[in-house]
Amino acid sequence: MKSHPLLVLLLALLTLGACGKDETKPRAIPTPDPAAKPVEVKLCDNHTTTTVAGDAPKTRELGQKIADSLMTKWKEKNPEADWEVEERKSRTFLPSADNSAVLKAGSQAPGTPYRNFTQRDLDEWKRETETLVVAGSKVFHSGDELGSTIAVSCDMCHPNAANTHPETYPKFQTQLGRVALLRDMINWCLEHPVRAPKMDADDPRMRAMEAYIVSQRTGTTLSYGKH
């Protein structure tokens, strides 16, 4: 769950003439200096670098080339960077609840930090909540992330989390002889069909999976104890 780094290129060379007052005039391309040494350009992660010939013409195209090359290197080092985009493309998700009513006149309480929201707050709630759900889907669909020793993942029996019925928990699980929560059943499945170690209740993977499983049943009536 790494955030996408802002690509800040320290390409002062590009800004030459790019933000001056004479923008309508064609830019003068500085004459290359055949004696110039190669220049090292560093990405904002402070690690990824690329080298440019010192005498290269300082054009916009070159700037783009440098940026692309740095980004390609960074992505190679961080292959999971686009995990959320990829996961969203692969699976089906239901949107989180529509909170637009919160912003309606009369439902705000100006002057108090709570109940004084903007669209930006709503966007953040949605983004953060749905990201947890998508993260849960990723764990749910990956034997590796689940820690399965036999390459089994939850979706093998529960595509789209079908037949997980989170709305029926807690319920007395006769086979366990006690009341089970959804996470107890997740842990039971981990230990048995999946053959993975149990997860702590606050394990980030457990929290994310609970989020995913519940999200897939949005709109279903809660009916705890149901068999």
Binding site: M156, H158, P159, A162, Q175, H192
Partner: peptide
């Protein structure tokens, strides 16, 4: 022989009489 799938949430043919919901505790 490996695992049962759940019934699809829609489109089930009228002639299908579903099998009992599998018991996860029963390998």
């Amino acid at each position: 022989t490996a695992w049962p799938w759940p019934y699809a949430p829609q489109g089930l043919p009228a002639l299908t009489i579903q099998m009992n919901r599998p018991d996860p505790f029963n390998p």
